[in-house]
Write a protein that binds this DNA or RNA. Structure first.
Lengths: 208, 208
DNA sequence: GTCGTTGGTTACTCATGGGTATAGAAAAGC
DNA sequence: GCTTTTCTATACCCATGAGTAACCAACGAC
């Protein structure tokens, strides 16, 4: 199971050997890449270590467990998503306009490694403690999204929809990107984001 | 890890003891329920056997491997989805009308065990052989969906959208149901199906 | 220099769970 | 009946991979 090395702080002997935070990040970068590529369960810590050209115990110098690594990956991804959603929570433009930027930014995150990892991570891959935390963070984001939808219905820029179901539909369409997007697949992230905005805003039916 | 027993053909001693197909189905029913409940990796074959009040070797009398069991579950689920999509492939009504039934039926399948299992199953959970088959079946359904969209654009009942991206958006919104739907969660499958049709057909923006 | 701290390796332990060898019970065939 | 086939359980094997013990190296401080 040969893994390509990517910007490993361990690659060169003479690189700054005392930079804990940099190395933690390098582990997460390698891990999230492998998790997305082969799946979490099919990725051993030996694989991650191999990609960085170190050995497993080295990784345990920076993380307590495989669970902590996965959780850090999804926490980062959820933070990116959260920023996308929060960017639309405030502002003076109409609710629909804010929703458009939200969808656009959310879609972009879902084409990047940490965003992808969030969609692909299922509850049973995390320890019970991390699982609770993971769910809470997701619920929080869902709530923020629902709030934006409610506000948009209130100001009349969005049809009177069920906020709960609509939030799930929007999140579903966007989260699914993580399951089909391929960087070399002919569709640029920007094009995907624009297309998603159009589809979710306008729907399938022709405008009257 | 106590598991409730559900209509096990093994539950009563005197039940017809020569009914291979019935027992195969009982294994799949128990397995899909547990897979959805605890996740595939976290469900051991001992768990499945326990739920049926038999032991592991009994299961190996009906299935060759854990992989075969999972694959049969997703194959069944995909067959249900396929039927929903194919029901809209032919017919005399407008493309949009056929898409509405498609979305409705698809959504319903996603609230049922085998449909849910499809969305929750990731590539790395299957053997490489099953994975290829799994992907092929999903691609086929996606192609059918795209065909319906193309036809709908052609007859003017759907806006001129990008069929590929639109198919992903629709499938995403629907597949995601499997990740949030709870049978006891206050939202009936029919209501979800209706809501999804409305959202995907009409979009967020008010109709002019 | 030498001493402690930090970062790293080699070489293990060990729980889990998929899968199996073997043998025994029950039904079907004759 | 007695044999054969189908079915099920007990008791096992064994690969995998997370996590650890123990030891070595390098660097900074003084």
């Amino acid at each position: 199971m040969v893994e390509p090395v990517i910007n490993s702080p361990w690659a060169t002997r003479t690189s700054g050997s005392r930079d804990r935070e940099l190395k933690r990040q390098a582990v997460l970068d390698a891990a999230v890449r492998l998790f997305n590529e082969k799946g979490f369960q099919s990725t051993s810590l030996d694989d991650v270590a191999g990609a960085l050209q170190v050995t497993k115990p080295t990784i345990y110098h920076y993380f307590a467990s495989k669970d902590e690594i996965l959780f850090e990956c999804v926490r980062l991804g959820l933070e990116h998503i959260r920023r996308a959603v929060e960017s639309a929570s405030t502002g003076s433009s109409s609710g629909l306009e804010r929703l458009k930027t939200l969808i656009h930014e959310y879609a972009l995150v879902k084409t990047r490694n940490f965003g992808i990892c969030v969609s692909r991570t299922t509850d049973d891959q995390l320890s019970s403690a991390s699982r609770l935390h993971f769910r809470a963070l997701k619920r929080e984001i869902n709530q923020l999204l629902q709030n934006v939808i409610v506000a948009s219905v209130a100001d009349g820029s969005v049809r009177p929809v069920d906020p709960r179901l609509t939030a799930f539909a929007v999140a579903g369409a966007l989260n699914w990107i993580a399951h089909w997007y391929r960087p070399d697949g002919g569709m640029a992230p920007e094009a995907i984001a624009d297309g998603m905005v159009e589809m979710l805003v306008s729907g399938l039916a022709p405008r009257a």
